[in-house]
Nucleic acid binder design. Structure first.
Lengths: 164, 164
DNA sequence: GTTATTTCCCTGTTCGGACAGCTAACGATG
DNA sequence: CATCGTTAGCTGTCCGAACAGGGAAATAAC
């Protein structure tokens, strides 16, 4: 996996400002999603870097810890990932010592992915990071506002899922 | 640039379902953002593919059309991108014939990026795609709901921008 | 004018993501 | 048993994104 490079002194930084030039009718919600997603991902990345992980790997590990050792194909489906992406992610996590690959006893095509004992040290750290990320995202919002945010996002998700 | 592979029969597909296992308190808003962003990006990708572009390139071209030829460093800053990413994006768009690189007359370090006449054919197509994407995102929402969505996203963006 | 600093762009590298192609193994059918 | 179609996983390729490092030019400081 190779530990992500430590933050190079300069934290990612707020990049740029408005992506929507002037009075351009450019799909306001759509672009807002892009901007929020970008910032969210950047923050996630800089938090995870401190734990030695790249964005995406933490979800894989959380899944393994939550539901135990699983077939690689299972992980791929559950995380909605690509099989090639999964192959390489597992390889990196294996090199990093967070995961072990065991031949599936009942299907010689398959591979069981299990978290190592060493990886347990990461779990608390990741949960803390998820907490920090959520807090940074919704800090300053009332309970009601947070509920509204969740409702809006769920609505958008449902919309987009239909067009996928 | 090499035209994106044509959709291989199967459109990206809704990938997986819930990423949040069971009753796990896992940063609900945060994960909702991740899911929405994922779907949004997938849809954007499949729409853009038909125009022969990859996600991200369309924003660059729109910027060029809107504000005219610009220094590469200007584009990088305005789009909040990475200079390396910009270098390669421009190279691909140049190979694809959508962009021309002209040495900056007042600063021999600089490069002016200008859209080609041929690229104009793309513009309407991209605007149409942005419209489709927006529609897919907010279809079925009332005007009031759309305003709420925008307000929520702006709020989240402001929050995240502070922590960046 | 010479030197130091900054800016601009390029290349190399690593990651996640997506698609295509391949092999080995499984399953079912004839 | 032999064949056919499917599934699991790996590798190659291309893209966007981010960081590191380098070289050239412009600018500031001396």
């Amino acid at each position: 996996m190779t530990t992500p490079r430590p933050p190079s002194g300069k934290e990612p930084g707020p990049t740029a400002g408005p992506v929507c030039p002037a009075g351009l009718r450019c799909g306001p919600v759509s672009h807002a999603i892009t901007r929020v997603a970008r910032l969210h991902r950047m923050l996630e990345g800089s938090l995870l870097r401190r734990a030695g992980l790249h964005p995406g790997q933490e979800a894989l590990m959380m899944h393994l810890w939550e539901t135990g050792a699983q077939r690689q194909s299972e992980l791929t489906a559950l995380l909605g990932s690509d099989s090639a992406t999964m192959t390489r992610a597992v390889q990196r996590l294996e090199r990093a010592g967070f995961v072990r690959r065991v031949p599936c006893p009942t299907d010689r095509r398959g591979v069981i992915i299990e978290p190592t004992a060493a990886s347990q040290a990461l779990r608390q750290e990741i949960e803390e990071i998820w907490w920090q990320l959520e807090e940074a995202t919704v800090s300053g919002l009332t309970e009601e506002e947070r509920a509204t945010a969740l409702r809006v996002l769920d609505r958008l998700e449902a919309n987009l899922a239909n067009r996928a």
